[in-house]
Write a protein that binds this DNA or RNA. Structure first.
Lengths: 251, 251
DNA sequence: CGCTATTTTGAAAGGGCTCAAGAGTAGTGG
DNA sequence: CCACTACTCTTGAGCCCTTTCAAAATAGCG
């Protein structure tokens, strides 16, 4: 699956001081940039996994199509992310550009050899795989036990944290994906996503900056958004020592 | 998270011919066996991830407790599985024995060094991480778009495939986990799990071998079980070339 | 400006949840 | 061996959130 870009940023930076090829980004930087138009596919589920990709610019969706036509989006890729590492023979999902996108590619064989040879690259790859695993597991928790509102808020919160981490002071988010994409990612219908956003606007938590641009959402009350997202980062401690039985809510 | 045991079995076997330490199992085999009683914890979410474990015998559940007390089981561990690899500082989940269990442990530091040093171990670790990632993603698909019946059937089917892979000819499954465990794993309530099993018995798909032993379930119609599980291994091809728009069902 | 795709809104139906009680199963100790 | 208790599992009834089906409103674009 995809690998988060904000993984071990310090390590990347350190390595870059010495030799560019000693960081994953450096490894890709020598490759030519390729352009993807909106809706264009990078690869398909089931294809032989011949390349590893770095997203230079833009956004992609990662998804599977089920036998009955339903689509499940398992993640989004943003600038700096790397796809195609934790795979064997074949891609387990399709990848498609949802905005005009720039990518670089490296043959898996080349990539694997470079990683096997470099003591700097291995920890970086490992770190990204760990982040990816953590992200999928969070998504698993979201899907197995959160309400529509909690799901939406969790999603928006993650996007918000992304832009804040990128140094953006404004709390206005650009949602490059459609409502249908959000629905397929959050395990909801497009109608529920739409209704839930309307409800959040009603509560004053978020707002559309300009009714014309529904893909720009301003987070008015980040604190409340985090509240509604539900995961007060779980609470493992309550479980420790004393098995607090009995008062399990829902599910 | 956990790592599936049937990963790259041939590679493991090959390495074992030469030197035992050149396979992951060999690496653990020198460690003393530790015993866990039913309900005993191996580690807690949030704990410093100091060890990597191999399950020698028994079954464990991997889970998180949410702030409102709900429990999400993200996986089960069986004999041969390895836990604690794809992690950074801390465990992202708790692990608890659901049957009497035997495990071996290795310090992460030792483990990481052994893997970094050995050209045989690295591919095996990589392979297991890939399998783990694929499993989590399948679970993600299950949770985001399957009905209660489909979830149950998918779960039973996976267990069936496990026992068949282990060379068992009988289609009777032992379910070491409680109904509540299954519910927390499948994103359902215990009542829905119970009702769905009753429904499957009514359809003649499965049966309880002996009403006294509800943890032993015989699969009477494996074919029908696979049907009801829903994932005719998805269908990526229908999507290729021609973007078949429009007739997306549900969600 | 007209056409199409996307999004929103409404009303009704349904699947799974909640609450509540009953039925088995085990374990304990007299 | 049989209460007695504690659990797990099953079953029932009603409700609620999300889905489904349908249509209107809004944006995007040639």
């Amino acid at each position: 699956m995809f690998l988060s870009s904000y993984a071990n940023a310090h390590q990347v930076a350190k390595a870059a001081l010495f030799k560019e090829a000693e960081s994953l980004h450096g490894l890709f930087s020598r490759q030519p940039i390729e352009h993807l138009a909106v809706g264009q596919s990078l690869f398909f589920e089931g294809d032989e996994a011949k390349h590893v990709f770095e997203v230079v610019e833009g956004t992609l969706r990662i998804f599977r199509i089920l036998s009955d036509g339903r689509r499940v989006i398992t993640g989004f890729l943003y600038a700096g992310d790397i796809v195609g590492v934790s795979l064997k023979e074949r891609y387990l999902y399709s990848a498609e550009a949802i905005t005009p996108t720039k990518i670089r590619r490296i043959a898996r064989k080349t990539f694997d050899e470079a990683v096997a040879d470099s003591d700097d690259l291995r920890p970086e790859v490992f770190s990204r795989v760990c982040d990816e695993m953590a992200a999928v597991q969070d998504q698993l928790v979201l899907l197995s036990s959160k309400t529509a509102e909690e799901r939406l808020c969790t999603f928006l919160l993650k996007l918000l944290q992304r832009t804040i981490a990128a140094g953006n002071r404004d709390t206005t988010l650009e949602l490059p994906m459609t409502r249908q994409d959000m629905a397929d990612y959050l395990g909801l219908t497009i109608e529920t996503v739409s209704r839930t956003i309307t409800k959040l606007i009603g509560k004053g938590v978020v707002n559309v900056v300009n009714p014309a641009a529904r893909h720009f959402i301003k987070i008015e009350k980040p604190g409340m958004l985090a509240q509604l997202a539900g995961d007060d980062s779980e609470c493992p401690e309550m479980h420790r020592d004393l098995m607090v039985q009995g008062d399990r809510r829902r599910h």
